[in-house]
């Protein structure tokens, strides 16, 4: 099925097989490999994309469902090496280790801060509950989000 949608602010037209998840479609057809497959069942958060600004699980969407919608992946956050403040915060606060959960974490941060520029730790925990990280123990992720909030406000 032919679909048209906005990807990181750019219009995209592409052929999407009906039985393909958005995750597989982004990775295999559009080569957006920052969206990761950690479980394929909605349990881990590595496949997070923003659908009309909200974080969702791309492994639990069909590609054809995004026809006419707006999708953001981490590529939409920065151009070249000019980091977005959220990315800068993750670098400075060591909010990543193996990095496999990181694109999902950063997109989740974006959605959270867009809605709530001054989140409490409790707000952060609720927003990140579905994003597993096996490496960091989460503290430095929380600190990254807090620093990002500060950087954006500046």
């Amino acid at each position: 099925m032919k679909i048209k949608f906005q990807l990181n602010g750019q219009p995209v037209e592409a052929e999407a097989p009906i039985d393909e998840t958005l995750l597989d479609f982004l990775r295999n057809r559009l080569r957006i490999t920052s969206v990761k497959k950690g479980c394929d069942l909605g349990e881990c958060g590595t496949c997070t994309v923003l659908l009309n600004g909200k974080p969702v699980r791309s492994c639990l969407l069909l590609a054809v469902q995004i026809d006419g919608e707006d999708v953001t992946t981490i590529e939409g956050l920065s151009k070249d090496d000019n980091l977005n403040p959220i990315q800068e915060a993750f670098v400075k606060e060591y909010g990543f280790q193996c990095g496999f959960c990181t694109p999902g974490m950063i997109l989740t941060t974006k959605a959270l801060l867009d809605k709530n520029p001054d989140p409490s730790i409790e707000d952060i925990k609720i927003a990140f509950e579905g994003n597993l990280c096996r490496c960091t123990g989460y503290d430095q992720i929380i600190e990254s989000v807090l620093r990002a909030a500060k950087l954006i406000k500046r």
């Binding site: 490999t33 969206v35 990761k36 090496d81 990315q87 670098v91």
Partner: peptide, 23 residues
């Protein structure tokens, strides 16, 4: 000291390649 990790920029921009990213 705390430095910017070698892998930092690639990992926060999503450009870091893992095995299955070599399509």
């Amino acid at each position: 000291k705390n430095v910017i990790r070698v892998d930092a920029i690639e990992k926060v921009t999503g450009r870091a390649k893992y095995t299955t990213d070599f399509i």
